[in-house]
Amino acid sequence: MTAAVVAGLATLPNGTYEVPERDLAGRVLLEAVEDAGVALADVDGLYLPKPRPWTPQGFFSTLLGNQFGLEIDEGTEIYTGGTSSGRAFHAAVRDVRAGTVECAVVLAVERNSVIETDDYLEYVLSIFDREFQSPAGPTIPGLYAMSMQRYRHEHDVEREDIASVVVKNRRNAAENPEALFDEPVTVEAVLDSRPVADPLRLYECPAPCDGAAALVVTTADAASETESETEAVRVRGVGSHEPPSHLLGGRDESLAAFPAVSAAAERALADADRDVDDLDALEPYAPFPHTEAILTEALGLFDRGDGAAACARGETAPDGSIPVSPSGGCLGRGHPAMVTPLLNHAAAVRQRRGESPVVDDVRTVLTTSEHGHIDGVTATVFGGEN
C-alpha cells in the first residue's frame, strides 16, 4: 500500500469574514498547493464537506474545479455533521493509498456569521428526533449540559476541574496567532460567566465562527520530488466508528461514555501499528470541557472519572505527560464545525514539523472529529517514525 502524506496545508485565522465562501476556499487552496510545492495541474482529487444549508453556493466542489481549472479523477462532497471534513480527509487518504489519485486537496470552509439565530435553531431542531425530541425544543448546549451532569454524578467530578480544561485551552490559544481567543482566563472567570444551559457556562461553550483550511494529501514518493522546503508528514493510521446512538438516543451506554472514541482510536492506532503510549500529543474535536476529559478517559490515558482532575493537575498541559489541544482546540481556537477536523489535522502536522509555539519534539499525534453527541467519530494518526 502506498504511504500517504500531508505535503502542504493552509489555514485562515478563525473569526468573521465579509467575503463569500468561494473566496476563502480559493485562498487556502492556492496557499496549500504552494506550501506543498505542487502545481494546480497536479491536483487530481478534491474532497470537501458539503457546505452547511445556509451556504449560498451549491455544487461547491464543481464550482472550485471550474474556477481553478482542476482536472480531477476523484471528487466528493460529504455531509456527516461535525465529522464531514474528517470523513473527506479519510476518503482522500484511502484513494491516495490505493493509487486512485496521486495529489488530493481536502478543503473545508464555513461562515457561521451569515446565519440568523432563528434559522440556526431551526436547523438544530431538525437534527434531533423530529417526532419525539424536537417538539421539546432541545439545543446542543442543553444536550451536553446533561452529559456533564451525568459525568459529575457518576464520578463525583469537581466543577472546578472541568473548568480547568477551558483555562488550559484558552492559555494554549493565546499562543496560536490564528485562534479566536488571545487572552487567558481563570477558573473563577469560567464559572462566573453567564449560564447557557445549567451547568454549562458561556466560556465552556465553543464559539461558532468563520474559517477555512486545506491540506494536500499525496504519496511519499511524489512529495519527495517537489521543491517544497516543508516536511511532508505521514498519515500513519485512520479509523472510524458509528455506535447505535443519535444525540439523546443512546443505546446501552451512559451519556458520560464515548464508545465511538475508543473504537475509532483503536482502529486508527492499529492501522498505524502504534498504541496509545506512543502518542506525543492529542488534538481532539472536543467542543465542551467535559467531553475533552471523557475523551482522554475513553482513550485509556486516564482512569474513568479522572480526566478533568488530570487536566487540573497539569497532565494535559503542553509540558504535561500528554499535551491535549496544544492549538487551543474548539474552546480556545474557535469552532467553525465543518473546518474543525482539518484544523486539528493542520495543528498535528505543524506540531510534527516543529512549528508549534507551545509543544516541541512531537513525533506522533492523534486527532479526532465527531458528530452529534459523539454519535460518530473519526481518528487519525500523524507522524511516527517514517
Score class of each variant (00 low, 15 high):
residue 264 A to M: 06
residue 248 L to F: 15
residue 264 A to P: 05
residue 194 R to T: 09
residue 87 R to I: 14
residue 146 M to G: 11
residue 330 C to A: 15
residue 218 T to V: 03
residue 10 A to M: 03
residue 113 S to K: 13
residue 211 G to S: 13
residue 186 T to K: 09
residue 296 T to M: 11
residue 298 A to W: 06
residue 127 I to P: 03
residue 331 L to K: 06
residue 88 A to H: 11
residue 30 L to P: 00
residue 23 D to A: 15
residue 278 D to N: 11
residue 161 D to W: 08
residue 158 E to H: 10
residue 24 L to D: 01
residue 295 L to C: 10
residue 181 F to A: 13
residue 174 A to D: 01
residue 60 F to N: 05
residue 15 G to D: 05
residue 220 A to E: 15
residue 197 A to V: 01
residue 61 S to D: 14
residue 85 S to E: 09
residue 295 L to N: 06
residue 108 A to R: 06
residue 146 M to E: 03
residue 370 E to K: 05
residue 111 R to K: 15
residue 297 E to I: 08
residue 352 R to I: 15
residue 354 G to V: 08
residue 141 P to Y: 04
residue 188 E to H: 10
residue 286 A to P: 05
residue 228 S to R: 13
residue 240 S to N: 14
residue 34 E to D: 13
residue 338 M to W: 04
residue 183 E to F: 04
residue 199 P to H: 06
residue 289 P to Q: 08
residue 33 V to N: 00
residue 189 A to N: 11
residue 320 G to D: 01
residue 375 D to A: 06
residue 211 G to F: 05
residue 270 A to Q: 12
residue 377 V to G: 07
residue 349 V to C: 02
residue 200 L to N: 04
residue 137 G to V: 08
residue 224 S to E: 09
residue 158 E to I: 04
residue 371 H to F: 09
residue 255 L to D: 01
residue 320 G to F: 02
residue 31 E to P: 00
residue 129 D to N: 15
residue 241 H to W: 02
residue 298 A to S: 15
residue 257 A to V: 12
residue 249 G to R: 09
residue 120 Y to T: 02
residue 186 T to L: 11
residue 295 L to D: 00
residue 370 E to V: 11
residue 131 E to A: 15
residue 139 T to Y: 08
residue 158 E to W: 01
residue 124 V to L: 12
residue 83 T to Y: 00
residue 14 N to E: 13
residue 179 A to M: 01
residue 207 A to Q: 12
residue 261 V to H: 05
residue 226 T to G: 04
residue 354 G to D: 07
residue 165 V to P: 01
residue 49 P to D: 12
residue 232 A to P: 01
residue 175 E to S: 14
residue 40 L to G: 08
residue 54 W to H: 04
residue 265 A to F: 00
residue 204 E to L: 13
residue 98 A to F: 01
residue 62 T to W: 07
residue 384 G to S: 13
